[in-house]
Design a binder for these strands. Structure first.
Lengths: 232, 232
DNA sequence: GGGTCGTTGGTGACAATGTCACTGAGGCGC
DNA sequence: GCGCCTCAGTGACATTGTCACCAACGACCC
């Protein structure tokens, strides 16, 4: 599963990736050709720090497979997950930000093995100039990110910890309700302390909503958690 | 000072506003002309809700004078100031966001009398397509906003209240160190409760750092507050 | 003047969350 | 087994948020 990590040239033989990319498939053929010919596909293994303080990326990335976790590292030593970039989404904004401002404290980490299209800045800029459809794609991505960050601020500032933990558990669980993570990692998700997560999980377990074991949490009563999240 | 609130056509006789707008003055003359001919100047009185839930703006705004306060209104009834748009900056991102997503909870309020240039969406899109300089301007605005929001999340999640209050007092004070505001308004700035602000201000006063009176706070020892903020 | 009312700020009790120091349990390599 | 590291549990305490209530002030009316 965890493929190589080099840069691979496009062959053009297989189904072009643009078509499988929601939001880009409606570009003009001419635009697609430009995108296909001037970009390359990169693969990075899970755990790679794609960008971070002192490490700016020189390309715009469009994720084909995998997820990238973007988190803020505070100078107090604590961390909080800002958002994730999933396949079908782009790193555009993050990249743009980091190019514009040197003193950022956010980092992007490949959470799984990642396959992405790397588009050079120059090509990206040309595309924005040429194609209205591409512009719409880019601005929609920016907009989504900013509104999400608005909600993030709202959540961090005003939401109770039990509700936020419930949300994350539901979001991170697989179909069977299992989550392979530690209390420490969950605390980074929420930007809180490990002890707080431990206490909340104990309370959830006491109520029979989850079952804990070392490095794992299993949701037993999804309905109850959803109810908690709903009725904030 | 509080002028009319209508839309006024550009006369073209006075110094074009583009020139006084940092970041736009380096546009090509052709681009400037397009911007000048297709946009209008609007004036709104202090306190006007420029956009909010259920009230999307149909134009992109470029602020010539005044400031707009953007705040998130939580469904719990609490509020927090997200950022301010000052003269020389644009509303682009906010506008873009709100157009893209209906269910937002942010609102923009004219904090002073505001004079701004209203650019129709179509013209805005054309400009982004035509001018690399305009693109750079827009992307720089987006980038700045997103990195600021990153810092905002960091601050809300990890910073102590006394430090955050000290920061705001320093930021809001005039040259003489005076701030005309209530504890309630300060609590909205920080997204906290009024009682918390009252307690912190009392502590600051006890230490001789500020002097309180009804509806006013005066900074007596700016150095001390700066020291608090520095040494987080 | 006196009365009424909304705004502003003060207070105490309590709950929720964050911080710190420490403990012990589980897993892994040797 | 033994040592070592990660992971989780615990209690004491500080900070912050919530709630209910009250007092002071200013604006307004009579």
């Amino acid at each position: 599963m965890r493929g190589g990590c080099g840069v691979r040239a496009m062959t053009g033989r297989e189904t072009p990736w643009v078509e499988r990319f929601p939001g880009l498939s409606r570009l003009a053929q001419e635009t697609k050709d430009l995108l296909l010919s001037k970009s390359s596909i990169v693969e990075v293994p899970s755990g790679t720090v794609i960008f971070g303080p002192g490490k700016s990326p020189e390309n715009m990335l469009f994720l084909l497979e995998g997820t990238v976790r973007v988190q803020q590292v505070s100078d107090t030593g604590r961390e909080i997950v800002l958002y994730r970039i999933h396949s079908g989404e782009s790193c555009v904004l993050t990249t743009a930000c980091l190019l514009a401002y040197e003193d950022y404290a956010a980092e992007g980490i490949a959470e799984t093995a990642v396959r992405a299209v790397a588009v050079p800045r120059k090509v990206f800029d040309d595309l924005v100039g040429q194609s209205k459809a591409f512009r719409d794609f880019v601005f929609a991505a920016f907009s989504k990110r900013i509104t999400d960050l608005f909600l993030m601020v709202d959540e961090v500032a005003f939401q109770r910890m039990d509700v936020r933990l419930g949300q994350r558990l539901l979001a991170l669980a697989d179909a069977a309700g299992a989550i392979a993570t530690t209390h420490q990692k969950l605390s980074v998700e929420l930007g809180t302390a490990r002890e707080v997560v431990s206490r909340q999980l104990q309370e959830f377990q006491r109520r029979g909503w989850v079952q804990q074991s070392r490095g794992k949490v299993r949701i037993c009563d999804r309905r109850a958690l959803e109810n908690l999240v709903e009725h904030h």
